[in-house]
Amino acid sequence: MTTMVTEAPETDIRRHELAGFLRSRRERITPEQAGLPRGPRRRTPGLRREEVAQLSAVGVTWYTWLEQARDIHVSPQVLDALARALLLDPSERSHLFALAGAVDPAPGSRCAGVTPALEALLTRLEPYPACIQNSRYDILAYNRTYGRLLCDLDAVAPEDRNCMLLAYTNEDWRASVVDLAEMRRVMAAKFRGAMAEHLAEPAWKTLLGRLEAASPEFGEIWARHEVVGPGGRTKLFRNARVGLLRLDHTDLWLGPSAGPRLVTYVPADEESRQGLERLLALSPVGA
């Protein structure tokens, strides 16, 4: 007799992983850590479900269903409240949103994948502009000269620090690129090539939706279905502070090609080198 085993759908696996993760985080927190009185005859390790619901401002029944892996919708705002109530660190918070298949509305300025060693490397590369990006073009970390190369990145909300979004929506960024049309075409083609491995992932679909809603120009380019692989080349920037910069762009992969990369811009001539020196001098320390 042959027994057939049906593999559980990915969403079902995610719900059970999420339920187990929430339960484990709840059980490790004491009432005192959460600012709650312990009370008499407490048998539950950590917090009770109703206490987590109270701290997160959600219904007890709804939270119970969540820990039971019920098929219910969880908004990013509720996940944010749960992360705060359960005192999750940045890595745990990222894991929570990944299990729920949601985009973190407040990821913070520091990415868990950017180590102190990488941050030190970015600083040591100054005055050469450098940043850490993922294959979705999210800017995870950057040094001072990169932060002032195309626009004032410090003034951009962390969730909007994405090269694709900035190239289509940020006027300062657009004005700094000499051949804007070609850069956007190549970026869209690279984005399409990278997205092939992430078609079902919410963060990728959300970014694509934002781009299509924000820019008819992006929609026209996207409809061409062009694909370009990763690679570096010389780029021209017209910086508002120091003028024309001719820079050689290089990607250094920090892991698998689908993972994060170190993006560097090295001056292609002496005038550009001097321009980067001036740009660094104009960038505030600690930016």
Score class of each variant (00 low, 15 high):
172 D>H: 13
151 C>K: 04
171 E>H: 15
158 P>Y: 02
95 H>M: 07
189 A>P: 02
67 E>D: 09
187 M>P: 06
33 Q>D: 09
132 I>T: 13
178 V>S: 14
245 L>C: 01
160 D>G: 08
236 L>Q: 15
145 T>K: 03
58 V>H: 06
71 D>V: 03
71 D>T: 09
201 E>T: 13
167 A>W: 04
165 L>Q: 11
89 D>W: 01
8 A>M: 15
68 Q>A: 02
85 A>H: 13
148 R>M: 09
102 A>T: 06
161 R>E: 03
228 V>E: 13
277 E>F: 00
24 S>N: 06
70 R>P: 05
77 Q>A: 14
109 S>A: 02
151 C>H: 10
80 D>T: 15
13 I>K: 11
258 A>W: 11
150 L>T: 14
22 L>I: 01
76 P>L: 07
213 A>K: 07
211 L>V: 13
110 R>E: 15
128 Y>P: 01
138 D>E: 10
158 P>G: 03
157 A>P: 03
119 E>I: 14
107 P>C: 05
264 T>D: 10
65 W>N: 04
54 Q>W: 15
251 D>F: 01
282 L>D: 07
63 Y>E: 15
256 P>K: 00
12 D>L: 05
182 E>Y: 05
115 T>C: 02
91 S>C: 02
132 I>P: 06
150 L>I: 09
222 W>M: 04
245 L>F: 00
125 L>C: 04
184 R>Q: 15
284 P>M: 01
139 I>R: 06
262 L>D: 05
30 T>P: 06
37 P>G: 11
